[in-house]
Design a protein around this nucleic acid. Structure first.
Lengths: 201, 201
DNA sequence: CAGTTCCGGAACTGAGTAGTTGCGGAACTG
DNA sequence: CAGTTCCGCAACTACTCAGTTCCGGAACTG
């Protein structure tokens, strides 16, 4: 990426990098992949198209970089809620701030899906930046509950950790229904906790 | 739709309708929404573009009609397996024929996602033609198991019926991993059956 | 048969937009 | 300063493709 920066001439203003990437995500959240044009991103970022093409080789390249920059600091394992019981941990992740982050992630997810079937790299980028951190967060909470003997070790922890993120994505994308607290409650109390309580068939 | 057919002139060959719709789905399975052109569909169906535009007003209209025509007869409730236990019923749905149908549905689903965020009707059409029948099939199997006292009535039957289809879609679309027998087994034995066995937290 | 509508095919129009280039000016280097 | 590379901006090129129109011919009606 560094492209061997020249020793001479005006320095590239790297504060524009993040401005442009943030503008890309904004446009992506507001419209969709197909409706995203470099022109819109440039206008939004108050930049020229040249400045964008100087940094990223193509539209897809730009979007991939923007996805990779998604802010997912709220999913860091050391910032996860720790209330003593899994159920309250899970609900603690659903306060307004968290839902805001979740909603933004879901919106990016829906906008990006158009790329998925065309650009193989897109799926990797989305998985790494959005899907995996969510799954990892849920896995972390469940594992901790198991460690404190709240539940027995489940037969398939990985599958359980995917329940909430995958069903939330499904609801937002295909069902086009609100991913709200009531929905999360049905996942937690109707699927996740019952399945954990009885790991054997 | 009938468009008041004229009393005079050559009759429209309605066998071409299904040829074109099938060609549309084929192109959709092989490529993606963005790469689908009317030209490709016409060539594939051995038809002229005029014949297509005479039947459907636009590209999206054509695709919506094609989705609505998806063959989902294998999900009819009276064709569902009935082996006596839920677990074997679920696995009976995973023989090669069924997986073939599942895979095709998932491929259509992934190709279609590009339309979802732009055309509201697309989400409705996909939900009605692909998502709902799957969910209904799983709900039917679970309900029958409950009726025969194999399991207690779950707290949230609707949520449970969505587990397998939504997680399969998620795996195909975002994770881009094979939706094979081993994966289904982890859903059935790791989530669905444990959750059913213990409906209370 | 005369008139109509269908058919596949090919040629055409028009819109949208990715990516390029050049301008005037600012920032940096030696 | 002289030369370079950055900046935002605007004009420009090149291409794809949706949707239209017309052709020669086939099928239908009265």
């Amino acid at each position: 990426m560094p492209d061997t920066p020249p020793a001479v001439g005006r320095k590239r203003d790297h504060s524009r990098d993040s401005d442009i990437l943030r503008a890309t995500l904004d446009v992506l959240v507001e419209t969709s992949y197909a409706d995203l044009t470099i022109e819109k991103v440039a206008t939004r970022a108050g930049a020229g198209r040249g400045a964008i093409y100087r940094r990223w080789t193509s539209k897809d390249d730009l979007i991939l970089a923007a996805i990779a920059c998604t802010d997912r600091s709220d999913l860091d394992s050391d910032r996860l809620p720790d209330t003593g019981t899994l159920r309250t941990d899970l609900f603690a992740m659903l306060d307004p701030d968290w839902l805001g982050g979740t909603e933004r992630r879901l919106r990016i997810l829906t906008s990006i899906t158009a790329m998925l079937s065309r650009t193989p790299d897109a799926a990797t980028a989305v998985t790494r930046a959005i899907v995996d951190p969510s799954v990892a967060a849920y896995r972390h909470l469940i594992q901790r509950a198991v460690n404190r003997r709240e539940f027995p070790m489940p037969a398939d922890l990985d599958a359980l950790a995917q329940v909430i993120p995958s069903m939330a994505a499904h609801r937002a994308l295909f069902l086009q229904q609100p991913v709200d607290l009531a929905f999360f409650a049905s996942l937690i109390d109707g699927i996740l906790l019952p399945a954990l309580a009885n790991p054997k068939t």
